[in-house]
Amino acid sequence: MITFDSVTKSFTDGTTAVESLSLEISSRTTTVIVGSSGCGKTTILRMINRMVDATSGTIRIDDEDISTLNPVALRRRIGYVMQNSGLLPHRTVLDNVATVPLLNGDTKKVARQRARELLDTVGLDQALALRYPSQLSGGQQQRVGVARGLAANPNILLMDEPFGAVDPLVRTELQNELQRIQRDLAKTIVFVTHDIEEAFQLGDQVVILREGGHIAQSGSPADIMSAPADDFVASFIGADRAKRTLHTRVLNGRTVVLDEHGTPAGLLKEVPSGGMDLR
């Protein structure tokens, strides 16, 4: 579990990115932090691996205060995936994935073997192993980024808008892939995005932020969708937009669900309570 206890981050220029944030992130689940740009979400993520140090308050990982830990050692046991992959352009795909195991002191052979396994995990062709990042597509680069994040077998995986820069088709593919990987590996994933759809799809817990890193609402996607805390949340998740409102009409004895344009979106089927879990 990752715990933020009244954490504040102010920068030397006087701006406060995060103010008195308290948050609990459960182990082995996906928590998505979502908000507009400049709301402090990346800062929150980077405080977990001490790329950014909190000005005040404490952050604990499983009851261990991270300010007492060596930052470099801490980063090596936490996976990190960033937008535009952040791969090292001068290293091959295989060596990029092997980076952290090598830093942790594994031999080249062991690290590369591990890297090869991870290419399979993230669905990358082994034929790409000896290419350089610039020779891959954006989607492939992001997969390599995810593989690198998983390479040291960390308990925690931090993801900073990892799918923000790829086209919508590839993004959907990567999101599905991440869900599949998470079902197998059950990591503690902290995922940052500005895309509420993505947040609802991936998150077990969704944390909606407003300016200054203040939590507007936090809960499961179903909780937030069914009971937005206030107008800000309602407008952020688009609950007040026609987009999320579906209509039904009975045709030939069956209930057809229509979207905002009147296009049939599917058939309505009653689910007995307890028959299907709300996410």
Binding site: M51, A73, R75, Y80, M82, G86, L88, V100
Partner: peptide
């Protein structure tokens, strides 16, 4: 971006210079 990412994955300050920035 590359600097940030080398920091994030856990290169020490010296390793960042010799293994990432220099090459």
């Amino acid at each position: 971006e590359v600097r940030q990412s080398s920091l994030a994955v856990g290169f020490s300050p010296l390793q960042r210079v010799t293994r990432v920035e220099l090459p």
